[in-house]
């Protein structure tokens, strides 16, 4: 669990009694953001008709997220494209940077994912009320449900709506933490079983690393697409 510890780097910064020191978590957030900005800078530097590799990668990211948004939330979600793009890139790069040995995984901390999920939850709720007023509350009352079941369904809908930030944040956090813990456990097995028996967990570790890279991408994708779906609920009332 040592890989998840947060420790201060540099001097202690206290503002109004709250510790806001620069930590290794902050360092890796900045590192991920810098990598994203670097990629985008190199990728959009030249206006080539035939793109080179890095330009192609940035344009693939762009069209990937654009397609994801238009598929799930429609054309009304276009103003939120920069936010979802930033969110996807940030989560993806934090996950991927966390896959490097000796690095720190920002997204394996519940507080980080919870803040992101809460922000999305609050923002989506506000957008919903701005777009539809009190009619937005009809999201809790699905149509075509028998009157007898209506109170129960409404309560379930409210609970499921309120649990969105929790499920969104815990999904990302738990996936990242579980994957890294598993890698750590198998790595420990390699050491403890030594040169004779260590080959099996070593091969497992290799396979798990591949799986974890997939999970890192998949969780970023899931996080972004769930944001799109919540946004879709707020923009287009379906119920």
């Amino acid at each position: 669990m040592q890989q998840f510890t947060v420790h201060r780097i540099g001097p202690e910064i206290k503002i109004a009694g709250i510790d806001l020191s620069f930590t290794n978590a902050s360092l890796f957030m900045i590192l991920s953001a810098t990598l994203i900005l670097l990629l985008l800078f190199v990728g959009s530097k030249e206006k080539k008709i035939i793109p080179d590799k890095i330009q192609l990668i940035t344009e693939m990211f762009y069209s990937f997220v654009a397609k994801m948004i238009s598929d799930t939330a429609g054309s009304k979600a276009k103003p939120y494209f920069p936010f979802i793009f930033s969110l996807f890139m940030f989560v993806l790069f934090c996950n991927m940077v966390g896959m490097l040995p000796y690095s720190f995984t920002v997204t394996s901390h519940i507080i980080v994912t919870l803040i992101m999920a809460l922000f999305i939850f609050v923002a989506v709720t506000i957008i919903g009320f701005i777009k539809h007023g009190f009619k937005y509350l009809s999201i809790f009352v699905p149509s075509g449900v028998p009157t007898v079941l209506m109170p129960l369904i409404t309560i379930i809908e409210i609970i499921s709506y309120l649990s969105r930030p929790v499920s969104l944040s815990v999904r990302l956090f738990a996936n990242m933490m579980a994957g890294h813990t598993m890698l750590k456990v198998f790595g420990g097995f390699v050491v403890s079983l030594g040169i004779l028996g260590g080959w099996l967990p070593l091969s497992f570790s290799v396979a798990l690393t591949g799986l974890e890279i997939l999970v890192a991408f998949l969780q970023a994708y899931v996080f972004a697409i769930l944001t799109c779906i919540y946004l879709n609920d707020a923009l287009n009332l379906h119920h």
Binding site: V6, S21, I115
Partner: peptide, 11 residues
């Protein structure tokens, strides 16, 4: 201990 710091730096 570092929740506030993480939130601050994240934002």
């Amino acid at each position: 201990t570092y929740w506030a710091s993480q939130v601050f730096w994240l934002i």
